[in-house]
Design a protein around this nucleic acid. Structure first.
Length: 285
DNA sequence: AGGGGGACCTGTGCGC
DNA sequence: TGCGCACAGGTCCCCC
């Protein structure tokens, strides 16, 4: 699921229930995620107060009052479910024991006055590791990540410069977090469609006007996705409290064989670096 | 150094 | 209904 817009949506949802709240209790049901959850995880975080939530690429960063930072990646299948306990239930028993409801619930947090946050990740490609605010900049998981696409630092000339000499397809380059942060398979396909660029084009040929067009397309696609994700979250805070993932109006992703919305040619699916690419051979050159 | 391929996991949906 | 295979929105490590 989670590319930049989804992670940003999750960040906002979690910020609303976590910021300025104390971590009362943590239950780690499984610690063998992509990286093992550290031994001292529960000990370090219990009793801490959350100061703020941030996002870098597809990572969530949760800052605590003692300089500790919790780094979370949702992998392919990770999600956060927020369970706002009713006042009744809280009153009856404030030390209601934390309990997993499904076998893929790996970490459960109890924060503030009765909010339960469940990390669910069937494939266990996600991770949760601890670091500190001072070590954040040079943390190995973050240190080689490129510009944030929605920041000004991400520009046509900047992207063109980093693509110089790169013979890989532009599709592959955009998935590489060193060139631009936070894009995944869906938004790469959608951005290339919007920019009118073939996913097969060699990365180094994306220069000047093309790179400006591509950067503009990426920013537009992501901005729209974040906006819709934001509204989806409000509509979709269900009784169970699950955060709804944004459903975009996809133009090419997953639409093999469908008529292109612009030129009516059937959308193609090819495989690049072992992953599906969807594109319109009429619109994308 | 750059780039390709497989590995890591589990679930789902399809064709037979 | 059951089985096997292909595929899934992400990274990382190894090898050429």
């Amino acid at each position: 699921m989670p590319e930049l817009p989804e992670v940003e949506t999750v960040r906002r949802g979690l910020a609303a229930v976590m910021e300025q709240r104390r971590v009362n209790k943590i239950l780690v049901c499984r610690s063998d995620l992509r990286r093992p959850i550290p031994e001292n995880f529960v000990e370090v975080l219990t009793g801490r107060t959350v100061v703020s939530l941030h996002r870098r690429a597809k990572y969530l960063l949760i800052k605590f009052d003692d300089d500790t930072v919790l780094l979370i990646h949702l992998g392919m299948s990770g999600r956060m479910v927020i369970d706002q306990m009713t006042e009744n239930r809280t009153k009856k028993n404030t030390t209601y024991p934390l309990k997993a409801f499904s076998k893929h619930e790996h970490v459960i947090f109890s924060v503030g006055n009765g909010t339960i946050i469940r990390f669910i990740d069937p494939r266990r490609f996600g991770l949760m590791v601890l670091t500190t605010a001072s070590e954040l900049k040079c943390h190995p998981l973050l240190s080689s990540i490129g510009p944030e696409p929605l920041e000004e630092e991400f520009s046509g000339p900047g992207l063109a410069g980093s693509l110089k000499g790169r013979t890989m397809p532009i599709k592959t380059a955009l998935l590489d977090q060193r060139f631009v942060a936070g894009l995944g398979n869906i938004y790469v396909c959608e951005s290339l469609f919007k920019a009118g660029l073939s996913p097969r084009r060699k990365a180094y040929t994306v220069q000047k006007k093309r790179s400006v067009r591509l950067v503009k397309a990426i920013k537009e696609v992501l901005t729209q996705a974040v906006a819709v994700g934001g509204s989806t979250i409000q509509d979709h805070i269900t009784p169970s409290g699950e955060i709804g993932y944004f459903q975009n109006q996809l133009k090419v992703y997953g639409l093999e064989g469908a008529a292109c919305s612009v030129c009516k040619i059937p959308i193609k699916r090819i495989v690049q670096s072992g992953r599906s690419t969807f594109f319109c051979s009429g619109c994308q050159r």
